[in-house]
Write a protein that binds this DNA or RNA. Structure first.
Length: 277
DNA sequence: CCGGTCACCTGAGTGC
DNA sequence: TGCACTCAGGTGACCG
């Protein structure tokens, strides 16, 4: 899944379902899914109340009463689902579950499952100090929804790389992935192959406007469900509004010419050679 | 510093 | 039906 709109949707869904719940038990059924120290993973979490759930870039962050946090990156196929506690590692687990968290409230008892078909996703548990250090080391760029045009221009035009590559770099801007970059570049009529240094302030300003418009609409529609992504409360529907992503071979919705498929930085890239300059 | 390629995994789709 | 092959929303390591 997950780019910014899908992570935002998942974080909002989680916040309404698990905030104020206490983590009472933790089971891990695929050790590599835990990217922080495995031996301290459960001890760091058990007994903690989840204060709230939010998002940083594509990361989902569960703030804990200790001041630390549980961070989750869903990569390609990670997903949270709610259900009943399986009891132990031999219990009834949803397909592809890699970890489970028993959550208890005053009168409730539910389980948060982390599922991940391809096992690329990662979970990390942090103390307050560990969290601060990790986020610093991660070095994520600013959130595109909070950027001002002048800052966006200086960030982007200072990079000597192709425009799409720059937008995908989480250290430059945090949250955009392949779908939303292709959609935003099409909306802004800019070629993914353009060198970022060649963009004028007018072009970067328009690009930022389009990025923010595309992301806002995608969040409103609970993200794009391609393959298996869905939030806690069901799939998104922004895929019905994709204009270029996954549509190579079809005609450009603006000019009618054929959409082309190329590669930028190893990523499949769909664009209109006629409209995007 | 930069770009390109591969590795990490599983599953779905395609073509023979 | 079966099999081989390609591709997929993301990063991170490695190489030239």
């Amino acid at each position: 899944m997950p780019e910014l709109p899908e992570a935002e949707t998942m974080a909002r869904d989680l916040n309404s379902r698990v905030a104020d719940q206490t983590i009472s038990e933790v089971l891990v059924s695929f050790d590599k899914i835990v990217a922080s120290d495995l031996s301290t993973f459960a001890p760091t979490l058990i007994g903690q109340k989840i204060e709230r759930v939010g998002r940083i870039g594509k990361w989902i962050k569960f703030d804990l009463s200790s001041g630390g946090a549980l961070l989750a990156h869903l990569k390609m196929t990670g997903q949270f689902v709610m259900g009943d506690w399986p009891g132990d590692l031999s219990g009834e687990w949803p397909a592809h579950t890699r970890a489970a968290f028993l959550l208890t409230g005053e009168n409730s008892r539910q389980t948060l499952f982390y599922r991940d078909i391809r096992k690329f996703g990662r979970l990390r548990a942090f103390s307050p100090d560990g969290l601060r250090d990790f986020l610093k080391e991660l070095g994520l760029g600013p959130d595109p929804l909070k950027l001002e045009p002048a800052d966006f221009h200086s960030i982007v035009s200072g990079k000597k790389a192709r425009l799409k590559q720059v937008l995908l770099d989480q250290g430059v801007i945090a949250g955009l992935g392949n779908i939303y970059v292709d959609e935003s570049l099409f909306a802004a009529a800019l070629s993914p192959f353009r060198l970022a240094t060649t963009l004028s302030p007018e072009e970067t300003s328009n690009l930022l406007t389009q990025i923010q418009r595309v992301l806002a609409k995608a969040i409103e529609l609970r993200g794009s469900t391609v393959e298996n992504y869905q939030g806690l409360e069901g799939p998104g529907s922004f895929q019905d509004h994709h204009l270029v992503y996954g549509k190579h071979g079809q005609n450009c919705p603006k000019c009618g010419e054929g959409l082309a498929k190329g590669r930028v930085g190893g990523r499949g890239t769909t664009y209109c050679p006629a409209c995007q300059k």
